Amino acid sequence: MGQQSEFSIIIAVISLALSFIVAYFAYLSPSKPRMLVSRYMIFFHNYWTTSSGDKWGGISFYLPITFYNWSPKGGSIFEVRLIIGRQDDPTKYFDISWAYFVQILQEQSRWENENVAQPIAISGQSSVSKVIRFDWSPNMGEKIDIEPGQYKLLVLAWTRDTAKPNLRDSISFVITREQSEQYQKYVEHNNNGVIEVPLGETNRSNNVLTVKQIDRFYG
């Protein structure tokens, strides 16, 4: 067998191997759902309707999340949970399961429940965005107090039916004195007005800046 024939065989083997690799990533690679958590969150004082009437004292959170899957095979999100607590009190973090998917009614400028939270199917090479509502009921006994300070938010998601989550994102945020006082006013008057909180270091509230501040924040 001449050198040219050996070279042709090597090229053919390499081409075949590359074809298998391309076919694997194009058609056979397993799904790998991922999530992107928004850098803002909304919370509000809330009530639960009981046989004896509306019972105030709960709190609800709205958190936008995008789930994506760049694999050709479809995947799923089985559950999402939110864990929240003050960073100066490691003994009390609140573990809250998703409750509803919500949407904003543009004409009325208000939020409403779209559907009960349920597993999300993600097609191959696609994404799904949801605003998820998490409810802490006044019937739970413990109360979530909104006081000024540093908080930690942990978002957990399950892509399989397992005990522990497959996806997680940990974010720090600050409740200002103004936000805390506004929330307390809503509580006192049984008002479910919403408060928006920036999350992490990459999101800030709308503001007026000087050139020096632009350089300091974003330069």
Rank of each mutant, 00 (worst) to 15 (best):
S52G: 01
K212L: 11
G219Y: 09
T91S: 05
S15E: 13
H45S: 07
S170T: 12
K185Q: 15
G149V: 05
Y151P: 03
A157V: 11
A12E: 03
L36Q: 02
V208D: 09
T176R: 12
N69V: 04
D169R: 06
S38K: 03
V116M: 04
F217R: 10
K185H: 13
L154P: 03
E196Q: 06
E181W: 03
F61P: 02
F20L: 13
R160F: 04
I11N: 05
S109F: 01
K143T: 12
G200D: 03
S5D: 12
I132R: 11
T162L: 02
T91V: 01
D95R: 13
V194N: 15
F20H: 09
G141L: 08
D161F: 00
N191L: 15
I21N: 09
S126I: 02
P148W: 05
G53V: 09
P148G: 03
I84D: 08
D215A: 12
I83G: 10
M41K: 02
G2A: 09
P138D: 12
I77V: 09
L82F: 00
I9K: 08
R204T: 01
G58L: 06
P33I: 08
M35Q: 14
A121H: 08
N166L: 00
I83Q: 14
Y68P: 01
P72L: 11
G219I: 07
P64W: 00
E6P: 01
S205Y: 12
I96C: 13
E114K: 07
F94D: 13
K130D: 07
P148D: 05
R216L: 11
A99D: 10
G75A: 05
P165Y: 01
I132F: 09
I59W: 10
G85H: 10
V102K: 05
S127L: 08
T202D: 08
F61L: 05
Q182V: 09
I42Q: 13
I9S: 07
D145N: 06
M35K: 11
T66H: 03
G74W: 01
E112C: 10
D54L: 03
V102Q: 03
K92Q: 14
Y151K: 07
E196P: 02
V211P: 02
W48L: 07
I11R: 12
L63D: 04
E196N: 03
F94M: 10
W111Y: 13
T210F: 11
